[in-house]
Simulated assay, not measured.
Amino acid sequence: MVTNKKDGALVLFSGGQDSATCLAWALDRFKRVETVGFDYGQRHRVELDVRPSILEVFRTEFPDWAGRLGPDQLLHLAALGEVSETALTRDVEIAMEDSGLPNTFVPGRNLIFLSFAAALAYRRGLRHIVVGVCETDFSGYPDCRDDTMKAMQLALNLGMDRRFVVHTPLMWIDKAETWRLAASLGGPALVELIRDETHSCYRGDRGTSHLWGHGCGECPACKLRAEGWRRYRAAPAAGVTVRC
C-alpha cells in the first residue's frame, strides 16, 4: 500500500523489534525509504551488529519492498554516551531511581536522534521521519511521549524551515499489537525475521534463544518483548488499529 508516491521517508532503525516493524510500515507506504542508526556507546551495541543482516533480508525476501529500500547510514554520537550515567551506557545493574524512572533512561536520547535524523533528512530530501517510540508499553521515558514527538516536529520545522512529518506508528499500541502489526504488513516471514534477527535485550545477550527471540530474559526489554509475544500467540489474528 503506497500512500505517497512522491515523498520519501527516513526510518530511525536501531536493529530492534520496534524499529524493524516501523521500517516495514514505512516501506508499505512510501516509494523511497532510507534508514539511519546511532552508535552512542550503548552497552547493547550488538543491536548495531544485526542491522545490516536485517536490511539484507528486507531486500532479498520482500520483493515488493526491495526496490523502495534505499541507503543506510550509521551516525556516531559518542558524546551522548560520555555525558550519560545510565544502565544503557555503563556496566551497572538495571534499577529504578528516586526520580521514578529506570536507570535505562538516557536523557535527551530521542531528542538528539530526531535532530540528527532531521538534518540527514534535510540533506537527502526526505520529508517523513519514522520513529518507533511508544506511550502504551514503555518505562515512563519522557522522550517517548506523544507530546514530546509533537513538540519536536514543531521545533524541527521551525528550526530548519521545512515541513517534516514525524510518524510514530507504535505510539498507541502495545507489544502484542506490534507483533500483530508486523504480521499484517509482512506475514509470517516478517514475524520470523523480527523474532530471529532483531535485538532488544538491554544486556546485549545474543547467546540465549527463546520463542520470542534472543536475550537475557530478565531485563525490562526482554520481559516486555516476551509478554507481548505470549499475548500475540494467544490471539495472533486480532485486529490492530494504528494512528500515525
Rank of each mutant, 00 (worst) to 15 (best):
M1T: 15
V2M: 12
V11S: 02
S14R: 00
G15Y: 00
D18F: 01
D18L: 04
S19K: 02
C22F: 01
L23W: 00
L27S: 01
R29L: 07
F30T: 00
K31Y: 09
K31P: 06
V33I: 09
F38W: 08
D39K: 13
Q42C: 04
R45H: 12
V46S: 03
L48D: 07
L48R: 09
D49S: 14
P52R: 08
P52G: 09
S53F: 09
I54Y: 00
I54E: 01
V57C: 04
R59D: 03
E61P: 03
F62K: 00
P63H: 08
W65T: 04
A66L: 07
D72K: 03
Q73W: 08
H76N: 15
A79M: 12
A79H: 09
L80S: 04
E82Y: 11
V83I: 14
V83L: 10
E85D: 13
L88Q: 02
R90Y: 11
R90D: 11
R90Q: 14
E93I: 10
I94G: 02
E97N: 10
P102W: 10
N103S: 13
N103Y: 15
T104A: 05
T104G: 03
F105A: 03
F105H: 06
V106W: 00
P107K: 08
R109M: 09
N110A: 05
N110T: 05
N110Y: 01
I112H: 08
F113A: 03
S115T: 15
F116K: 10
A119W: 01
L120M: 11
L120G: 07
R124G: 06
G125L: 07
G125H: 09
G125V: 09
L126K: 01
L126E: 02
L126F: 05
R127Q: 13
V130A: 01
V131E: 00
G132I: 02
G132T: 05
T136Q: 14
D137I: 05
F138P: 02
S139A: 15
S139K: 11
P142K: 11
D143S: 11
D143W: 04
C144N: 13
C144D: 07
D146P: 06
T148Q: 10
L154Y: 10
L156M: 12
L156S: 07
L158P: 04
L158F: 14
R162K: 15
R162P: 04
V165W: 02
V166L: 14
H167C: 06
H167Y: 07
P169I: 03
P169E: 04
P169Q: 07
D174Q: 12
A176Q: 03
E177Q: 15
L181S: 02
A183I: 02
S184Y: 13
G187P: 07
A189M: 08
E192A: 14
R195V: 09
R195Q: 14
R195M: 11
D196A: 13
E197R: 15
E197G: 04
C201H: 03
R203K: 14
T208Q: 08
L211W: 12
L211V: 12
L211D: 15
W212A: 00
H214I: 05
G215V: 04
G217W: 02
C222M: 08
K223D: 09
L224Q: 08
L224C: 05
R225I: 06
R225F: 06
E227C: 12
E227A: 13
R230L: 07
R230A: 14
A234M: 13
P236Q: 09
A237Q: 13
A238L: 10
R243T: 12
C244F: 07
